[in-house]
Design a protein around this nucleic acid. Structure first.
Length: 583
RNA sequence: GCUUCUUUAGCUCAGUUGGUUAGAGCAUCUGACUGUUAAUCAGAGGGUCCCAGGUUCGAGCCCUGGAAGGAGCGCCA
């Protein structure tokens, strides 16, 4: 605490001889002294009737003294919580008294107190009450860590009406001394000297929310997405979500990539990645029409129909073909009516794009990148990860053996870090599937033939049954992939790759891009994409075209993998799905 | 969009062939207790049985229609 924090009070008091200054203010807390005679001031003794926060009983006294020397300059003393001043000398003038109405200690984050707190130190923490047990133990969480700090109040010395307001979900500021805990659950705790209620929480209303201290279903938590941050599970999920985002930026930065911001509003829907959300300023009931009765978009804000981006890839390619290696990391919008636990209408996507990379370089980059993220989370989120891990173990224990995870959360992350991804071509995958038991027993619902897109059941079989590790499938038939993917020499397949993760399915889709102008133009024709819509994209193939490759990672799918959450709506703060845009 | 399951107290769920006043655990409130950590003990309050219509002497339960949510599939990241 610095003196600058104090409010100066304009009064001057002169002492002659030993004396006691009794303050008018209950919590007078600082003073500035100036030597007023030749004699040295030896010692200041501060005396208090009782600690702040206890009831006003003057049944004991406590003293704290400060030795001091003056060299002519003013000296400051901080007398927090002491409201009597006794001066053991004479002839000193107190130039100023400083005071404030509450203890202005610096608030410390609970994470810091738990890791660095020294027994005997004074601390101030602020946070939300998770539980208040036995009228004595307040568990406080401030979001800095999944761990709560235990604040112990001697309820005998506190006002009952104050303690009544310490309820689940209320917010408090608590100060006191760090002491070694007598209980088993924690090493240190705060012996509370002062409690302030920052915000009350009516228990009758709290019990209707996800903050009531009990286990809740994921569906109920989702209905209260604005409050679910207060729970351990979602606290952990969103701290890990942040860590994954940071790890992504750190990886690319350290590898010399540039973060490229591609537009959210775009006229490009040529990629065919999916249905788009249209953006217009027209009054939907009364849009301007042209002479044919069609909506006249030339009068709209952008002068043509535009939509929210479905991918920043095409723009990222433009950047990569000058800056060398770039990545995007931004929101992406798909208006498909997808009702699954793996799809959102608004999600975040990471799309690196690297000049001079071929498909193998692309696979190497993907694998190193995904391993880096997994390792980063293991190294930096151990408390949150352990909580989610234990949660999953407990839930698995109640499921039949067949439905349990073969590896638990932490082991799955370690597995990704420690093991090579299995790489095989689409053609090889079809052969593996045709040799498989479910194929021979006709258990697959969808056909397995060269040329058809693999469905979830096939991908799951490869990842979860056959190889039991992340799988990179490559070289798909051209017909089932996008127009920009580079045609292989066989003329039938393209240099595409998908990374399949256990439990998640496709987490990454990427390819080497078609850099040859003539082939790209004929692909545009095949896919019925007008060249004039993509003139800017085709331009890069005219002026010093080079091989290049990139991929898209669904951010939320990565967070699902890192947290073990099984529904994508539980890894984004406010999910956007068909028929749902609450909050 | 398709298939399928679910909807009963604040939450998670029981509720028998259609039969009296719809239950439990947790949560909340009141009291007791006080070094607890899913605290304990005693008591209390709390219900549009998703909605609408129908069958029946009688419907939480049966029938018809609708709504919301979950899981799986398709599309994809």
């Amino acid at each position: 605490m610095s003196v600058a924090n104090l409010t100066r009070e304009s009064r001057s008091i002169t002492f002659s001889g030993n004396g006691i200054l009794k303050s008018k203010h209950k919590w007078e807390s600082g003073l500035k002294l100036r030597k007023n005679s030749s004699k040295d001031l030896r010692r200041l003794v501060f005396r208090a009737p009782c600690p702040i926060g206890t009831t006003n009983r003057f049944n004991w006294w406590s003293e704290r003294s400060v030795d001091c020397r003056f060299d002519g300059t003013p000296a400051y003393f901080i007398l927090e919580q002491w409201n009597y001043l006794k001066i053991e000398s004479s002839n000193y003038r107190i130039n100023y008294l400083y005071h404030f109405n509450k203890v202005e200690m610096k608030r410390e984050k609970i994470a810091d107190v738990l890791t660095n707190g020294q027994v005997g130190n004074d601390v101030l923490v602020k946070g939300w009450v998770r539980s208040f047990r036995a009228n004595r133990f307040v568990a406080i969480n401030d979001g800095s860590t999944i761990k709560n700090i235990q604040a112990v109040v001697d309820f005998e010395n506190f006002d009952e009406s104050l303690l009544k307001r310490i309820t689940t979900a209320s917010s408090v500021a608590v100060s006191g001394k760090i002491v070694a805990s007598q209980g088993a659950g924690q090493a240190i705790e705060i012996a509370v000297e002062h409690v302030e209620i920052l915000g009350d929480a009516n228990p009758e209303e709290v019990q209707k929310t996800v903050m009531q201290p009990k286990k809740h279903s994921m569906e109920f938590l989702r209905e209260q997405a604005h409050l679910r941050f207060r729970t351990n599970t979602f606290g952990a999920v969103f701290r890990i979500r942040h860590a994954v985002a940071y790890a992504i930026h750190k990886y690319f930065n350290d590898e010399g990539f540039y973060y490229l911001h591609t537009p959210i509003v775009t006229a490009s829907d040529a990629e065919g990645a999916g249905e788009t959300f249209n953006v217009t300023n027209f009054d939907p009931a009364n849009p301007p029409l042209d002479e044919n009765g069609a909506i006249d978009y030339s009068k709209d804000f952008f002068g043509k129909p535009v939509n929210l981006t479905v991918s920043g890839q095409l723009e990222a390619e433009l950047g990569a073909l000058a800056l060398g290696q770039v990545y995007t990391f931004g929101p992406t919008f798909r208006a498909e009516n997808s009702n699954t636990s793996r799809h959102l209408a608004e999600f975040w996507m990471i799309e690196p794009e690297v000049a001079f990379n071929d498909l193998k370089d692309n696979m190497d980059l993907t694998e190193m990148f995904l391993k880096y993220i997994a390792k980063y989370v293991l190294d930096n989120c151990s408390d949150d990860l352990q909580f989610l891990h234990d949660r999953e173990v407990k839930e698995d224990a109640q499921k039949p053996t067949a439905e349990r995870n073969e590896l638990n959360l932490i082991d799955r992350l370690k597995f990704v870090v420690d093991n090579e991804f299995k790489r095989l071509t689409y053609t090889e995958a079809i052969e593996v599937l045709k040799r498989s038991k479910p194929y021979k027993k006709k258990k697959f619902k969808y056909p397995v033939e060269w040329g058809v897109d693999l469905s979830s059941e096939h991908e799951r079989y490869l990842v979860e049954k056959e190889f039991k590790c992340p799988v990179i499938l490559s070289d798909y038939p051209a017909e089932i992939k996008a127009f920009y993917m580079r045609q292989n020499d066989d003329g039938k397949t393209v240099a595409a790759m998908d990374v399949l993760f256990p439990g998640i399915g496709e987490i990454v889709g990427g390819s080497q891009r078609e850099e040859r102008l003539d082939i790209l133009k004929s692909k545009c024709a095949d896919f019925e994409i007008p060249e004039e819509d993509l003139w800017w994209y085709l331009d890069t193939r005219k002026f010093g075209t080079v091989p290049h490759a990139g991929f898209g990672l669904g951010f939320e799918r990565m967070v699902m993998f890192a947290t073990g959450m099984t529904n994508i709506r539980d890894v984004i703060p406010f999910p956007r799905t068909p028929q749902n845009a609450e909050f």
